[in-house]
């Protein structure tokens, strides 16, 4: 069963702030959904290979040929904060 600490740990991994009330709610809701999901634990799946791709193709590669890039103006058009020709963020070293 999923508990408060687990919810907080997962929220940190997912970079999601949750209020105390949201944490409580998440404990209940995730627990409820996981209870249903856990029914797959009962299946005998020994020797069954996993399916990552339903498509059975390999080597869908591209040639090493350049394509046009965006202009800096286009690249930065949607950025919430811009400085010095780049995307500005709070420093990770602060």
């Amino acid at each position: 069963m999923i508990d408060r600490d687990t919810v907080l740990h997962v929220a940190r991994l997912a970079r999601l702030e949750l209020t105390d009330g949201e944490v409580e709610r998440m404990v209940g809701e995730l627990g409820g959904v996981l209870e249903h999901i856990e029914t797959i634990a009962q299946l005998d799946l020994d020797g069954v290979p996993p399916t990552t791709h339903v498509v059975e193709v390999a080597n869908a590669l591209r040639e090493d040929e350049p394509r046009a890039s965006l202009s800096r103006q286009q690249a930065l058009a949607g950025a919430p904060a811009v400085a010095d020709e780049g995307f500005a963020v709070p420093s990770p070293q602060a």
């Binding site: 999901i37 797959i40 299946l43 799946l45 069954v48 290979p49 996993p50 399916t51 339903v54």
Partner: peptide, 15 residues
């Protein structure tokens, strides 16, 4: 493995 791995195997079975 308990969740993602098993779910992918269930996927194989369903196909």
């Amino acid at each position: 493995e308990a969740y993602y791995g098993r779910a992918q195997r269930v996927r194989t079975k369903i196909a």
